[in-house]
């Protein structure tokens, strides 16, 4: 039968697509990581789990609201372009939001998280909110950063390093001052007493 002869070539095509999709995901991200401009977003992490991809921390960004003329035009889940700039301390700041693709400025694609009528502002939902971590470290990452934020050392900065190019973004690292959060958690875990703190 002709069909059975076609079967293998067809399978090769399907297999190629199966290989292509993850490869494309990798190459797209590699390009952003290598060429993208770095932005640092101040953040606080919390830790949930995904059944297939493991533990991650969700990042709540300090910089997420922006004033708009009228909240009518900005509905939940609308696709938007967020213009970025750096503040005097070198952290990312939202310069404004646009409905159409901006030219000649740094921006990221994002969504409207919700809009607030009373003070004419919207909250932005950035696409880089998930940071996957080794399973024993995700919860501790939340605990340690929370502890510092509240009472011990409020001068420490927790921030996400995000690479941005052409509106696309990749979350590269989450840092606590100059250390990667996973390294810091590892140090803290090593020096912690058996009962935790």
């Amino acid at each position: 039968m002709n069909y059975s002869k076609l079967l293998f070539p067809l399978f090769i095509v399907v297999a190629a697509v199966q290989l292509f999709v993850p490869t494309k995901m990798i190459l797209d991200r590699e390009r952003i990581l290598n060429k993208g401009k770095i932005y640092k977003f101040k953040t606080a992490p919390i830790d949930p789990t995904d059944p297939f991809r493991g533990k991650y921390i969700t990042l709540n960004f300090a910089e997420r609201s922006v004033k708009v003329d009228s909240t009518q035009e900005w509905k939940r889940d609308d696709k938007i372009y967020v213009l970025l700039e750096e503040d005097s301390d070198g952290f990312a700041k939202i310069k404004g939001v646009r409905k159409n693709k901006p030219e000649g400025q740094d921006f990221v694609r994002a969504k409207v998280r919700y809009s607030r009528k009373y003070n004419h502002s919207i909250d932005v939902s950035f696409p880089f909110r998930k940071y996957y971590m080794e399973e024993s470290k995700a919860y501790d990452a939340e605990r340690y950063t929370r502890r510092w934020r509240i009472n011990i050392d409020s001068t420490q900065n927790v921030y996400a390093v995000v690479r941005v190019i052409d509106g696309e973004s990749v979350l590269q690292n989450v840092m606590v001052d100059d250390k990667r959060i996973e390294d810091l958690v590892k140090e803290k875990q090593a020096e912690a007493t058996p009962d935790g703190f």
Partner: peptide, 14 residues
């Protein structure tokens, strides 16, 4: 694809 989305912190829900 789970591993790739983990390595690159690819957004998107389950």
């Amino acid at each position: 694809i789970a591993m790739v989305s983990q390595i690159y912190n690819i957004p998107g829900d389950i």
